[in-house]
Design a protein around this nucleic acid. Structure first.
Lengths: 323, 323
DNA sequence: AACTTCGATGTAAACGGTTACATATTATGG
DNA sequence: CCATAATATGTAACCGTTTACATCGAAGTT
């Protein structure tokens, strides 16, 4: 029994002869290793739990790639679940993952300042928030400065001469990233002396399918915007599709900026101007931080890292053509 | 101990008074349920393993949604891993999932006729192949008729008067779906009396980023195609992006048909003509079949279900404008 | 040859639930 | 009020691995 365990985990510790004996026995009773029993015994799953808001936005897929690569490099698995932008689901899934004894957690949640932060800190399982901009709090984080991202995106539009700049925002309730990007949008407006027209800000649920109504609300006002800043690329692409349906041309009639720089954004027509996040690197860093905390044990203090973003100008934005 | 177990699994079986006593004790020693121990003891994880080829193509996300919904409806979790279109990874991941004692498996693999089928059949864990077109074999399957899908897509182009129809195919080695769609493409060509020009068929790895070279190869021939059938919507969108880079207009210069009808396809410009797969339903059916087999035990026979697809005509295809 | 040392192998407890079965408690009927 | 049935609770074995520790055997030392 013990020798079999040794055989499996460090074959060099058992004599060649015994090794052979074991190999045969294994063949004989076509034995299959029981990972669950191992976990039960060691209390280590070699698994990192990942909670993402949705599987349909490929930013999360891209960061997952970085996460996955780094994890496998260290012999860890990734257990991914999606919460569908539902904060109740987030808590439920975190509990599920903790019950399943994941060694660490990486999560993108609607509100990293909410009760979930305490839950995580109490659980004693290393965790890091991904994508959010945090500078404090009991659980670590890695992201970009979403407020500055929003500021930069809006500034780009203002630089092009736009004055009626709308924001097509993902619902703040389900994403603090969207809220921070909105903060940056506001700051830019006030820096430029532009008025913040509440009619030019609409919040919609995440997902392409909700863009229609949002764009309609924006464009059917008395004084419609000449530029739209969308919370993410998916919504920007959705918005462009809707604008086209309304007979408007991007960027001639309306400029559009997105956020994330999803691969798709450089293939759509027109190619999307956007804020690039270093998502692959973010994913990598997140697992590094988890493994780091795992190494340190209890006495590790939360860290908050903020990576650089970058404005990528493509075809969906243009100078305001004054009528 | 036993009462605690009862308390957790069927509270109605313990007296209110005892229930209270247990609740307090749980509070006291802030007990956390250990799912791994339960699994170890019961040999049931209430989990279905899911192997997908990539996380960046949203078809898989969409089918996963159906899968997830049906699974949770029956109290099952989904454990998703992606193989990145690598057949070695597929085998490795299947072994991993089996070691983790998943109760059933749903998988989309490069070749459902390959050795993995035997492995699965031998393992004794219920499994179903998703997306592939199978009519026999030891493991169940649910998909559409990919050959007919390819035929229908190509026929649509032929009906529009196109004679030089290219196929931008995902590498056959990594996807039998692509191969079947190609078979349909060939059948259409021969039915119409069109010659199958090998220069008009290129295989590329999956992913937007590989479309550039594929389209270049196609368009830089002496007699370039007037229509392109792509293995999936992602590649179709990639192709449209590349065609635009070459100064060609879709559909005026070149018509493009995709496959899958991913949500994004109705938002890009021009909106993509494609073959719709009932992906949500496919996901649901797959877990139903797994749970069904789980119910029957050993004596369940493999089933192969083929659902209907549908040609969705949008803006990316047009009649051949004869020069 | 006896003693020490060291590596290889065997033994048994432990991990935390579940569950069959034994026992205790409560309800029911005569 | 007792016998009996029904229901609630307690007991202990079990799942398959790891791991600390015991034991064994071979090689090296005196």
């Amino acid at each position: 029994m013990a020798s079999v365990s040794r055989f499996i985990n460090s074959p060099e510790k058992v004599r060649a002869e015994t090794r052979e004996r074991i190999r045969l026995a294994i063949q004989e009773c076509n034995y299959r290793f029981n990972f669950v029993a191992k976990v039960f015994s060691t209390q280590r799953t070699q698994t990192i739990g990942l909670v993402i808001p949705t599987i349909t936005n490929t930013v999360f897929a891209d960061s997952t790639r970085g996460l996955q690569d780094e994890a496998t490099r260290h012999g860890y698995q990734v257990l991914m679940v999606n919460a569908d932008y539902d904060s109740a689901a987030e808590s439920r899934l975190v509990r599920h993952l903790l019950e399943r004894q994941v060694d660490g957690l990486v999560l993108t949640v609607s509100d990293p300042h909410g009760p979930i932060a305490r839950e995580l800190a109490d659980a004693g399982t290393p965790a890091v928030f991904l994508f959010s901009t945090l500078s404090e709090g009991p659980v670590s984080s890695v992201g970009i400065d979403n407020e500055r991202g929003g500021f930069d995106a809006t500034t780009h539009l203002a630089d092009l001469g736009h004055e009626r700049i709308a924001m097509l925002a993902g619902s703040f309730a389900t994403s603090d990233r969207s809220r921070h990007r909105y903060d940056g949008y506001c700051r830019c407006l006030s820096t430029r002396g532009l008025t913040l027209d509440p009619q030019l800000v609409v919040q919609i649920p995440y997902g392409l399918e909700y863009c229609r109504e949002g764009v309609l609300r924006l464009m059917q006002t008395a004084n419609p915007p000449t530029a739209i800043f969308a919370s993410n690329d998916l919504m920007a692409i959705g918005a462009m599709g809707e604008l086209r349906s309304l007979g408007l041309s991007v960027p001639r009639d309306v400029s559009v900026v997105g956020f994330d720089d999803v691969l798709m954004s450089s293939y759509v027509a027109p190619r999307l101007t956007t804020i690039r996040q270093p998502v692959y690197e973010m994913g990598r860093r997140a697992v590094q931080m988890v493994l780091d905390a795992l190494g340190r044990g209890e006495q590790s203090v939360p860290r908050h890292v903020i990576l650089n973003h970058e404005l990528v100008v493509r075809e969906s934005t243009a100078s305001l053509h004054r009528a």
